[in-house]
């Protein structure tokens, strides 16, 4: 039984928690109330739907990229101790710290036709400015950290003995990694990928620099956050809010659907 003496403490917890939750919910509810009525008309807007398509392509490829490279890195960070490990940890955290506009500039600089590996890539026709490839690079730089961090912490929670047992049973390091370690953190990998996907979907700052619009099916298409910004400065807030609400509904629906599918199929246990 909680004693009455704890009451002021619980009141403190409840009041402060409610205030922050209200702060999160209030603008979202208002956006959905004001913009929700324009949901259907937004879906009928061809340019908006193309921008959603481009954004989903960018964020989905970014998630795949984050899992592909982030899982091995997360494993290294969780399982091994080595010199300069803290330096690597800082490097992994840096994308969260740097302003997104700056990341856009960095990626543009790193892969432009004049510096670094840019001239080499240009020889093969690979460019980053106003391309989906450039947008993926910038967004990956900013959002892969989420997958790496989630994977790292979940691998750290897997008893290393499980891998030792697997190897004693004849499984090689590779077999152990793919048949024992990865399946045991499947849920975290999916969650990490989902976080990266959500983060990538909402990215605007870096895209202002590197992919304000992209060429998609011989058309110029704005990634959806920039599409909403364009609507705002061209048509005003009420028009932008309709597209914004539609984007939020679509993203949340995909997010919920993804989680539901993988829970039903027993992928998340």
């Amino acid at each position: 039984m909680r004693s009455l003496n704890s009451l002021p403490f619980f009141a403190f917890l409840v009041v402060f928690s409610l205030l922050i939750l209200l702060f999160f919910a209030y603008p979202l509810v208002l956006l959905l109330v004001l913009g929700g009525s324009g949901f259907v008309t937004s879906l009928e807007n061809r340019s908006f739907m193309l921008s959603i398509e481009v954004t989903l392509i960018i964020s989905t490829i970014t998630s795949v990229f984050a899992v592909l490279f982030g899982v091995p890195l997360g494993y290294v960070m969780a399982r091994y101790d080595f010199k300069f490990k803290s330096l690597l940890e800082t490097l992994i955290d840096i994308p969260i710290v740097i302003p997104h506009i700056v990341v856009g500039l960095m990626v543009l600089l790193a892969f432009s036709s004049q510096y670094g590996v840019g001239p080499f890539l240009h020889r093969f026709g690979i460019t980053v400015l106003d391309t989906i490839f450039g947008a993926i690079l910038a967004v990956s730089y900013l959002s892969s950290t989420y997958t790496i961090k989630v994977v790292e912490s979940s691998i750290a929670m897997v008893d290393p003995e499980v891998e030792l047992v697997s190897r004693s049973l004849g499984a090689s390091r590779f077999a152990t990694f793919f048949r024992v370690t990865i399946p045991s953190i499947k849920r975290s990998i999916l969650n990490g990928a989902l976080l990266t996907w959500a983060r990538a979907t909402s990215e605007a700052g870096a895209l202002f620099i590197i992919a304000y619009y992209v060429f998609f099916y011989k058309k110029t298409v704005y990634p959806s956050p920039i599409f909403i910004y364009e609507s705002y400065i061209t048509f005003g807030i009420l028009q932008a809010v309709k597209f914004a609400a539609a984007l939020v509904i679509i993203v949340i629906a995909i997010f919920i659907l993804f989680r539901a599918i993988f829970r039903v199929r027993g992928q998340i246990y």
Binding site: E161, L164, R167, Y269
Partner: peptide, 20 residues
């Protein structure tokens, strides 16, 4: 020789079954 080539069985102190 690597662990997987030794053919030596091992039951660790902490019980670690493959949960999946």
């Amino acid at each position: 020789l690597p662990i997987e080539k030794r053919n030596i069985g091992y039951v660790p102190q902490s019980i670690v079954l493959f949960e999946n």
